[in-house]
């Protein structure tokens, strides 16, 4: 006879993802308000939830397509909030939230065309962007911040180009 996993444990991946989503507006306000230390702590917490929700879902056998979508959108909202706050502060470029929206939108639109491509940047783009933002908030040096923004812009550009190339290849292969 097997014991059923308690509801709270089964729900923990979604709760962690929900917590990350709830942290997005908090992070926006903290960054625009100049509370870099509190924002770094909040972002670190969000990154921990991002690292844990997937493994927990698999561990408790509750991994699902809906959960993966929830995780994807929570990452998107969090990253948009953080980089929009940097841009609102006049410290970061608007190009990052703009390119993030384009990249995530492009991914959603083309995911059925390219389900199994290997793109180390694209697969980790959320982590790369969150890591860049965390280095800005934790180190709080304007030169480091600019380097982090360049890394974020470069990663977004590379992953968009890679995905566009894969999509073009998939479309060409499927053409009669």
């Amino acid at each position: 006879m097997t014991r059923r996993t308690p509801f709270l444990l089964r729900a923990s991946p979604d709760l962690l993802t929900g917590l990350r989503l709830a942290l997005a507006p908090v992070l926006y306000l903290l960054i625009v308000g100049g509370r870099g230390d509190a924002a770094a702590a909040c972002l670190a917490l969000a990154m921990v939830t991002d690292a844990l929700d997937g493994p927990l879902a698999r561990h408790f056998g509750v991994a699902s397509r809906a959960g993966a979508h929830f995780d994807f959108w929570a990452d998107f909202v969090l990253i948009e909030a953080v980089f929009s706050a940097f841009a609102m502060s006049g410290a970061g470029p608007w190009a990052i939230p703009l390119l993030t929206a384009i990249a995530f939108g492009f991914f959603v639109a083309t995911v059925r065309l390219t389900p199994a491509i290997y793109d180390p940047i694209g697969r980790n783009i959320g982590g790369i962007l969150m890591g860049s933002a965390f280095s800005v908030l934790a180190l709080r040096d304007l030169l480091v911040a600019q380097a982090a923004f360049m890394v974020a812009l470069g990663a977004l550009t590379l992953t968009l180009c890679a995905r566009a190339a894969f999509v073009a290849g998939a479309v060409r292969r499927s053409a009669p």
């Binding site: 180390p120 940047i121 790369i128 890591g131 030169l143 480091v144 600019q146 380097a147 982090a148 360049m150 890394v151 470069g154 990663a155």
Partner: peptide, 11 residues
């Protein structure tokens, strides 16, 4: 590795 190399070049 990609991020570290990119960060080094950017810095």
């Amino acid at each position: 590795v990609i991020v570290l190399v990119a960060a080094g070049v950017a810095l």
